[in-house]
Design a protein around this nucleic acid. Structure first.
Length: 684
DNA sequence: CGGTTAGGGGTTTTT
DNA sequence: CCCCTAACCG
């Protein structure tokens, strides 16, 4: 039974009476076992599994805990437990209320936000200061939604009071952004939480206990969501020293004020670390002790036996570092899956991956240019998005940008044309246009060009008589568009054929299969593999192109595999957006950012690029304390062997580096760290 | 000339 | 991958 394997501290926490319990669990102290034990305890006591809500930071973490419970309880029981990330659970509830919900990637929504921003003519406003960029505003707005329950302008002006003169415009942009999302049928990650939160205000979903993992990283919005559930029993597990999501609004107040917010709060502390060896733990503690303590931390080493002291690896050049690590990994006896290379920012990953590949060492990456960021996958998902949500102009634009001579602006016009041709129905506009003239577009733009003033004379469709087109395409009103050229027409022809073929299909795998073998997609594969087959000189390497093509086809096949589990297209598309980032490809050494490594453990860990400026990050919006917590998280992933590595010089970028201050703090480099400013320059 | 499209250079972290 | 700049079009 899960409870019998717990130590005294863990068992005390896991069997605590129902109420408001906070479990302070330092790295490696058996947090997962305790949560699993807690749920087992609840089930033993007769709590209905469907009345247990388990909120985690990743879906993988939820899956692991559920899998462990299934060893002790019937699957039928365990599957009734409501579990997942805040987002996944919110989505699950929300899709019942709004079956047409279309989840969108943040990057997509950013593009939408920018397009709204760009309609404002800041130059003509004679502003006393430069307005914030669209990107920055979008990011701040997104942060605001996670970090604050106030109105946007109040929160924003507190940070940037000098922007009061422009605040009206910012607010206007934000409001239009919200309206457009509704119009297009889009929902952001934040919207999932926001909408469920407001739904809960008058529709209670009752749970006998709500469990929250990684509580230190919950933000204000998530905190409010927990409150909106009005849980009678709450079981939160976290560690202040591992709070690394300040940039996403993670609110330490949630954990710091727990006992004052709940009068019946009980705090438990788990202090025996079973993961790491004594020297690794003592290094981690030496560093994290420099942060202000919210609660005392005494970590007791639970492991005995032979240990290896953490090792500092210093190299002259960046690539020498990567190659040396790759060599070491090639020759170690530790299984590759149990090795991780951890870095502060993703820019380190490419060089490491290349060095490992060179030696034939397999590796897998999470995040970065992941599977779902690949253009060939995005294209297919955009196609599917457009099928489930024909209002999705963003998806349409991305698809048509592949046609040469068509950029985002023209693609947008095409989309509006189709809507017009189909009297508001996009698919009808594509397949069965009822309106045979061109719409008047952009009344306030392009006036001087005189576009669209005369409906029928310009852009005679007969320009394309000689092309081999579908009979229906010859007479399509889109061909009248003055800016469409031959390539665009061919592209449209392929698009038309595919849409025609897909009409009436419902099975996701069947739809995807049809799309993959379509002429339209073959063309995309060709465009992408040609791009990737080019050498630095610009010459096309046929062999390289062929390999690229193979990789694309393999990826498309993988997506097809994934789609077979779904019966409804919309569910499939949303699932890919919601859980896609967590999927990692292949086997081998784990390449991870510190953030992505949270909650994981490995026998052998390399923390790389430990140089001032990169780790800690100098461009940081967050504090040095948060960077220190990142370092703490990184090193506490290691079970047996820990390597801390850096290079003093990057000969490609010609930058000299100094060792990270954390290496001084860890005692691996003698003497206190001296701030670069104190020396004047970065160079020695 | 204005609006686009196309290609080159630097990158913080996530659901 | 996003921003900037250079070419391109009417």
């Amino acid at each position: 039974m899960p409870l019998s394997s717990l130590n005294d501290d863990q068992r005390k926490a896991a069997t605590a009476p129902l109420g408001h319990n906070l479990i302070i669990a330092s790295a490696g102290t058996g947090k997962t076992s305790t949560i699993v034990g807690r749920i087992a305890h609840l089930l033993h006591k007769g709590v209905e599994p469907s009345k247990i809500l388990l909120l985690t930071f990743t879906n993988k973490a939820a899956g692991e805990m559920i899998a462990r419970l299934e060893r002790y309880f019937p699957k039928k029981v365990v599957s009734q437990i409501e579990s997942g990330t805040f987002h996944a659970v919110s989505y699950r509830w929300l899709k019942v209320l709004h079956p047409n919900l279309a989840l969108k990637q943040p990057s997509e929504l950013k593009t939408l936000f920018r397009s709204i921003y760009e309609k404002r003519n800041f130059e003509r406003m004679n502003l006393p200061l430069a307005p914030f960029s669209a990107t920055f505003l979008y990011e701040m707005y997104s942060l605001y939604q996670n970090a604050s329950l106030e109105v946007f302008d109040v929160w924003f002006l507190e940070k940037y009071p000098e922007h009061e003169v422009i605040m009206d415009v910012y607010m206007d942009i934000a409001e239009e952004f919200e309206r457009e999302k509704v119009d297009y049928g889009f929902a952001s990650f934040n919207d999932l939480l926001l909408r469920i939160k407001s739904h809960l205000e008058d529709h209670i979903i009752h749970f006998d206990e709500v469990l929250v993992d990684e509580y230190q990283d919950t933000n204000t919005l998530q905190g409010a969501l927990i409150d909106a559930l009005k849980p009678t029993a709450l079981f939160c597990v976290g560690d202040y020293d591992q709070s690394i999501y300040a940039f996403n609004g993670a609110n330490i107040e949630n954990i710091a004020t727990y006992s004052t917010r709940y009068h019946d709060a009980k705090v438990f502390t788990l202090s025996i670390n079973y993961r790491s060896t004594a020297p690794i733990l003592s290094l981690a503690n030496r560093v994290i002790e420099r942060n202000e303590r919210i609660y005392p931390k005494k970590l007791v080493v639970g492991r005995i036996g032979k240990t290896h002291p953490p090792k500092l690896l210093m190299y002259k050049d960046l690539f020498e570092q990567y190659q040396a690590i790759a060599q070491a990994i090639k020759h170690t006896y530790t299984p590759n899956d149990d090795i991780a290379i951890i870095f502060r920012n993703n820019s380190s990953a490419d060089g490491i991956e290349a060095s490992l590949r060179e030696l034939g060492v397999a590796c897998k990456r999470k995040g970065g240019t992941s599977f779902f960021d690949a253009k060939e996958i995005k294209f297919l998902l955009d196609l599917l998005s457009l099928m489930v949500n024909p209002k999705d102009m963003m998806a349409f634009i991305h698809i048509f940008e592949y046609a040469s001579g068509v950029g985002s602006a023209l693609a947008k016009e095409f989309f509006q044309c189709f809507l017009y041709f189909g009297k508001g129905n996009f698919m009808q506009g594509v397949l069965y246009p009822t309106q045979n003239d061109l719409p008047k577009l952009n009344p306030n733009k392009n006036v001087q060009l005189g576009l669209f003033d005369d409906d029928d004379e310009i852009g005679s469709a007969s320009r394309f008589r000689h092309l081999e087109l579908d009979a229906k395409v010859y007479g399509h009103p889109l061909l009248k568009h003055p800016k469409i050229i031959q390539d665009g027409v061919k592209f449209f022809n392929d698009f038309y054929s595919l849409m025609n073929e897909l009409r009436g299909m419902e099975n996701p795998a069947k739809i995807l299969q049809t799309a993959i073998v379509s002429k339209l997609y073959k063309n995309i594969i060709d465009i992408l593999s040609t791009q990737r087959g080019r050498l630095k000189s610009g010459e096309l390497d046929e062999e390289k192109k062929r390999q690229a093509k193979e990789r694309i086809e393999r990826k498309a096949g993988l997506l097809l595999q994934l789609s077979r589990q779904y019966r409804e297209l919309r569910r499939f598309v949303n699932a890919m957006i919601l859980g896609g980032g967590e999927l990692s490809e292949g086997e081998g050494v784990n390449l991870l950012t510190v953030h992505a490594s949270k909650g994981l453990e490995f026998a052998e860990v390399y923390v790389v690029d430990l140089v001032d400026g990169r780790f800690p990050n100098r461009r940081m919006m967050s504090s040095i304390d948060e960077e220190r917590r990142l370092f703490y998280v990184a090193v506490t992933r290691a079970k047996d062997r820990l390597y801390l590595s850096l290079a003093n010089y990057d000969k490609v970028k010609k930058i000299e580096y100094k060792p990270s201050q954390f290496l001084h703090e860890a005692g691996l480099i003698k003497g206190e760290f001296i701030e670069p400013e104190a020396k004047g320059k970065k160079k020695e």
